[in-house]
Amino acid sequence: MDSILTCNNLSKSYGFMLALSSVNLAIPKGRVVGLLGPNGSGKTTFIKIAAGLLTPSAGNIFVDSKPVSVDTKRIVSYLPDRTYFSKSIRVKECLELFADFYQDFDMERAMQLLKDHQISTDAKMKQLSKGMQEKVQLALVMSRRAKLYLLDEPIGGVDPAARDYILHTIVANIHPESTILISTHLIADVENILDDVIFLKSGSIVLHDSVDNIRNQRNSSVDALFREVFAYA
């Protein structure tokens, strides 16, 4: 099966602190993959490298067989773990920005998602709550027909009802050809939408398997396995 994301001996260090240690990985196309691990395990660092926000200290990473570059940014839709729009910008200006820069951006889809949540396109970002700002970002990111979606903690820090909405938005907008990489430590909430899981511990991959295998061969849920692997001794 073709891989959308491949990395060979990928390492990243911040000074003396090793955030990723010789990660080897191949994520096939058309899968929903959970990048799971406790806080500080290297999930965000990995996603930031794939998105082109960080440069690796060693090793290589390829998106759709190309090194991370302008070309890969065209096919990657990235949702960071924070809000990134200027507070003075209007929602409609955010839409224009995405429409201008991303050829795969579906304006109608974005408008519908915003309408579903009664977010006015005339509103300024500073007039919206943090949760609403996150929903605007999610609507924009999921309105792209990207080959790879990188979603960093999309349900972190939101209430259970908002989590359901976010996951529903993600699932409803999955394209068969697209791959979604979701980083989270809230396993129980995302377990049902995942095809594969990657467990990351102290910057290293300790498990990469399909959810079906975990359920059938290990006779365990992903959540239970996660608790077992990351149990505090």
Partner: peptide, 18 residues
Amino acid sequence: YKNLMTDEGYLSHTLPVT
């Protein structure tokens, strides 16, 4: 500074531009 070096940079640096 704000557009490239703070949280706004998460958008600016992931746009398909050099």
